[in-house]
Amino acid sequence: MTDAIATPTSPAPSAGRRVPLWDNARFLCVMLVVIGHGIQRQTADSNNALIVYLFIYAFHMPAFAIISGYFSKSGSPNGRQMKKVITDILIPYFIMETIWTAVQFFVEGKKSFNPTEPSWTLWFLLALGIFRLILPYLALLRWPLLWAVLFSVGVGYFDNVDSTFSLSRAIGILPFFVLGWKAREWKLVDRWRNAEKTTWWVRGLAAAVFAAWLAVLIVFIPQFREMDLRFWFFYDDSYRGLGEDQWWAGLVRLGLIALATLLSAAFLVLVPRKETWITGFGQATMYIYLLHSFILYPIRETGILRDEHSSAVWLLGMIFACIAISIVLTARPIRWLFRPIVEPKPNWLFLRSLNEPDKPGRTDPTGSRRS
């Protein structure tokens, strides 16, 4: 979050000036999330769908975590900042989890309400909350990024660290969040934004990285299907749960972290740095993230995307449909209608001293600041 926690040595992000690069990156990231969820059912019967799925899942959530980390700070939070953790993360989480419980009750007959097990996309909200708790302590240590990587690799050896409160997944992608936080300290993105010359070869190199990853997927897709590579990209199960209990299983995750870092860097290099037609959509990141699953849920559960409906034509159709869904969910009427559950303001819950009017341009948990 942009106004989460502050330290004297960490420069705060610009409060009044929007940076198109970040809005563009947020929208493209969340659009990839929607596409990945949209085509997931087709991966069972189509290698083409699995190639696209693995191409996306190798980096899209790590990139999302990097962006969120870039707009986070590491000092002790004050009361208003702690309040935002409740209003921007915890309350929306419980609201959306309650809605999902009702949907699954009426559609699937499930009768349990268990907020300790996040439904579908809600794990990332809890992960953001966990990141907020961990970062101030990591910032006290030397080499916080190294420690984050060690935690991520090490947690896979413990079967008892599972998806409860998204703990295993949060620790799994923690290095990317910390990398984003450190990237702002290192001014890496500022240097790229201000670079005017020799950018063509950097973008060319980034495109080559993606082309190489795509080529690897195409050549080895039978092996990747057999080893269930997609589950490794979730950073959720223990190595034993993934079917690999050898001592070197952590090296596989370490390699995937390196791959995700490389692909995320290539992604950010290719994101337009100037304002484009997608820039405004980046201000509604959380609306897309939290609401798209309700649109895709009936499509996924009916099984319509299986068998002959997993063809290349259907795959392309689903990709374009997911892009359209991402755009529609940024519309002003949609935001007006669903603001009470995505951006609740339960001022009655807090002390009067914490209920001062918000500054213009409220930020969401990914750092998106709306005009």
Rank of each mutant, 00 (worst) to 15 (best):
A15N: 09
F294I: 11
F71R: 00
A331S: 12
F151E: 02
G36F: 00
V202T: 11
W336L: 08
L305V: 05
G303V: 04
N78F: 06
D307S: 13
L90P: 05
I257M: 05
P360H: 04
W147H: 10
R253F: 12
E196L: 08
V252P: 02
S168G: 08
S76T: 11
F94E: 03
G109W: 04
Q42W: 01
D159I: 09
A265L: 14
E108G: 14
Y157C: 04
I327C: 11
T43N: 03
V269S: 02
W147D: 04
S68K: 00
P346F: 06
A15Y: 11
F55K: 03
A260S: 15
S264E: 01
H309N: 15
L32Q: 01
A215P: 10
F234I: 08
R193A: 12
R273A: 06
S293Y: 11
L133D: 04
T164R: 12
L32M: 13
S368P: 02
L140M: 12
N78P: 04
L217M: 06
L270P: 01
F151W: 12
F210E: 09
L296D: 09
G75T: 08
P92F: 11
S168R: 10
I221Q: 14
L254A: 15
N48T: 13
W22D: 01
I173V: 15
P77R: 13
S311W: 06
G69M: 10
S264R: 00
W192T: 09
K84L: 09
G241L: 02
D364M: 05
N48C: 07
W247R: 08
L268T: 00
T363W: 12
F176M: 11
W143T: 13
L128W: 10
R369L: 03
H60S: 00
N24Y: 01
L354S: 12
L291V: 08
F234M: 11
F231P: 00
R142P: 06
V107N: 05
W186Y: 14
A170I: 06
